[in-house]
Computed example of a mutant assay.
Amino acid sequence: MTGTDREPARESWTVGRVVGGQEQPTRFQLFIARHPLGVGLGVGTPLMVIFTSAALLDHAPENSVTGACFGAALGGIYGLTALGERHRQRRLGRRGPRSRL
């Protein structure tokens, strides 16, 4: 890759460093990073149940599929966020907590 291809990644890590991305992870962040699939399922499943049951209680069974998809999408977003935290921690381990770009 040339230097121009890596520019968005460098800017992303710079923003992350400014908002505290160089700090050591907490115990909760370590747990989340170790279990991204569990986080996605643990968040998505209850949301799917809540949204689907809300649609069924509203006497609109045609919206239950939409509610289930919305809950699954939110669970997927949480899972991807946990995966991003895993990559942040891996980068911290490679570069060290006090290194600069």
Rank of each mutant, 00 (worst) to 15 (best):
H35P: 00
H35N: 14
P36H: 07
G38N: 05
G38I: 03
V39L: 09
G40A: 04
L41N: 03
L41M: 13
G42D: 05
V43F: 01
G44A: 10
G44N: 08
G44S: 10
T45E: 00
P46D: 03
P46H: 07
L47D: 00
M48L: 10
V49I: 13
T52L: 08
T52N: 03
A54R: 11
A54T: 12
A55M: 10
L56Y: 04
L56F: 06
L57I: 09
L57C: 06
D58P: 03
D58I: 08
D58C: 09
H59V: 11
P61V: 10
N63C: 09
N63F: 14
S64Q: 10
T66L: 15
T66E: 12
G67R: 01
C69E: 10
F70R: 07
F70Q: 06
G71R: 04
G71I: 09
A73V: 13
L74G: 00
G75F: 03
G75W: 04
G76S: 07
G76M: 05
Y78D: 01
G79L: 02
L80W: 05
L83H: 01
L83C: 00
G84L: 07
G84R: 11
G84P: 01
R86Y: 08
R86L: 11
R86D: 04
H87Q: 11
H87P: 00
R88H: 02
Q89R: 11
Q89N: 11
Q89D: 06
R90V: 07
R91G: 01
L92R: 15
L92H: 09
G93K: 11
G93W: 07
R94A: 13
R94H: 12
R95Y: 15
R95P: 02
R95S: 14
G96I: 12
P97D: 05
P97F: 15
P97C: 10
P97Q: 13
